[in-house]
């Protein structure tokens, strides 16, 4: 399973997204606001989940803002940190 696929699975299962499957999430779809419609509480959970599942810590705003734009950006951030 690729990082993107795993991220989508985490989003749907751990954030309890309803009426959407992992396959339906677009790689460049905005995670917050328009797009998937996640909110600030989801952001907190997502930061925790990324650390739990990938061992990657999003430490602050400088790292988090660009990383949490879409599946593409988040996967790239995770893979970059894991290298």
């Amino acid at each position: 399973m690729t990082t993107k696929e795993k991220l989508k699975q985490i989003l749907v299962e751990d954030l309890n997204l309803e009426d959407i499957t992992p396959e339906e999430i677009e790689d460049d779809e905005p995670l917050f606001g328009e797009g998937l419609g996640l909110d600030s509480l989801d952001a907190v959970e997502l930061v925790v989940l990324v650390q739990k599942h990938f061992g990657v810590e999003i430490k602050d705003m400088e790292e988090g803002r660009p990383a949490l734009q879409s599946i593409n950006t988040l996967a790239a951030f995770i893979e970059d940190k894991q290298e």
Binding site: S40, A43, V44, V47, I58, K59, D60, M61, G64
Partner: peptide
Amino acid sequence: GFLGGTLEMMGVLK
């Protein structure tokens, strides 16, 4: 701010 300042808040606590 972005995501209600949540990431900044987490950064402070971390």
